[in-house]
Design a protein around this nucleic acid. Structure first.
Lengths: 277, 277
DNA sequence: GTGCGATTAGAATATTCATTCCATTTGTTA
DNA sequence: TAACAAATGGAATGAATATTCTAATCGCAC
């Protein structure tokens, strides 16, 4: 048995659970994972409720509390409740303090200030995204993808993360995807099999990656229906595209968070899946 | 008796109490004042406790709940508890409610609605990110990266886009980066040269990619200073890490937008660059 | 002051709850 | 394979809880 856990903060409890996790038995590990993921449920629920939601018998919950050094579930629950209580009142205070420290950060150079700057920027880019994308374009895009045999993804350089993410999601949804990444040589060869039966999603922002600009018109000329995600109507992947999503105000390459295009491709993929039923 | 108060928000309840205050009897007015002043006590206490603290008999508390149209104290307490839940996770409740209401409706299946849903979710994940990441962790992370000769990036499966993005930004800033992608065979070989002079950034979310879970402890054991970005303290890349960024409430793999981790790695990279001057 | 309706307090009750206990299963060592 | 220890699930138990009921009290009109 462990030492008594008299008064413990929620964060301390989290640490203690994480530390002992591997030493716990199977059932108890399962409970540990649940309570870390659903602290609110533990704070407000009864033993029976927590047990049901985590898929274990009630007695296991009590044993878990014992294993952590508590006298019982009720005692452990107090710690989870303290988190809720702390969340209401001092949040204002904490938020204000955080704001102040950020303002004071002389140059805005401290990592924390940098983060909040990117968060703020990402927020506004999301707002811009939802305003600039219209239902008609999304419908057209999902229609193209729905008819495609294979979906080719072209996004190199700074856009590569967006392409890989779209590839991942589409594959999870059971679509056939060819990610043009140039591994092992030419992306020309990777895209050689693309036809009008397939579809292409091209993603490119300034400065437009040369290979993208070169390959895109080839595929378009071969009759592959194309969806483009870019930051300007003058970009090299606009001409010939069936659908163009223009995401404006993309910061310079090293500073862009890719938040907006990530969201957009996600919505395209899920929208495609939901519409397919 | 008053009309039934089915589902009521805390603010609505406050308004209702204030409005009826003068129409209530003496004892009930006393209780009304107490509950408005001590909503947390009502949310977490028992009837007996609330009764004692407000200086009335328990039955009066129940009568008060009845007078407000609730079936009993327990029912009224739910409203006070909702306030606590809302306080700790500002957007969580709204997100769930929204998801549920939209999921069934025909509108929710249209691509445009899907997009706005993801945008909303991304927004809330950004708020959660800026609240959960502390300056101390960011400082420690940038310090590790600043001292590193080579920076190794480990992020496979669904986390791969995050790793590629971080690789891109760091390289733009002139850092030496090794992206462990397993191309052409074993990632073991790719990471073979890593030593204590280098650094590792590991990114992994549920379900944790097996190769990540396997490689991570090896690198840690070899003394490579490590920064982990994950969604639970129980994830396989937590133990042994110098710095852990925990990003909570990550949706299931196919639905996550990766917005929060993308922002975080961006801030790490830029913060590193600014601090290096 | 008297009578009547509304209000109240406290005891009684029925329910819900956390906890404990034990038989069974699971995993391990010999 | 056998024997043992650890862990587990579910029923039993006793405590705690919300609610109801009833007798007493209060406020008020007459």
């Amino acid at each position: 048995m462990n030492k008594a856990q008299g008064a413990m903060s929620y964060d301390e409890l989290r640490g203690a659970i994480a530390q002992r996790h591997r030493a716990l038995s199977g059932r108890l590990q399962q409970i540990a994972e649940f309570v870390l993921d659903h602290p609110t449920d533990v704070a407000l629920g009864t033993v029976a409720e927590v047990a049901q939601r985590s898929g274990v018998p009630p007695s296991a919950i009590v044993r878990f509390a014992h294993a952590l050094g508590f006298g019982g579930f009720t005692e452990m629950q107090q710690v989870f409740r303290s988190r809720l209580v702390a969340g209401v009142a001092p949040s204002y205070k904490a938020r204000l303090a955080r704001m102040k420290s950020e303002e004071k950060s002389v140059l805005g150079r401290q990592p924390a200030a940098v983060l909040s700057r990117f968060v703020a920027e990402a927020q506004s880019s999301l707002v811009a995204l939802s305003q600039s994308v219209h239902a008609r374009e999304l419908d057209a895009a999902t229609a193209i993808l729905a008819k495609a045999r294979d979906i080719y993804l072209l996004g190199l350089g700074g856009s590569f993360p967006v392409a890989t993410h779209l590839a991942y999601v589409l594959r999870k949804l059971g679509r056939r995807v060819v990610l043009l990444d140039g591994t092992g040589g030419s992306i020309h060869e990777q895209s050689h099999a693309a036809t009008g039966e397939d579809a292409l999603v091209a993603i490119s922002f300034r400065n437009y990656y040369p290979d993208t600009a070169r390959l895109f018109p080839e595929l378009v000329a071969r009759g592959v229906p194309t969806i483009s995600i870019t930051d300007s109507l003058l970009s090299p992947i606009v001409e010939g595209a069936r659908v163009v999503f223009e995401i404006q105000d993309m910061p310079e390459p090293a500073l862009r968070t890719l938040v907006a295009p990530m969201c957009l491709v996600q919505a395209m993929a899920i929208g495609l899946d939901l519409a397919a039923d």
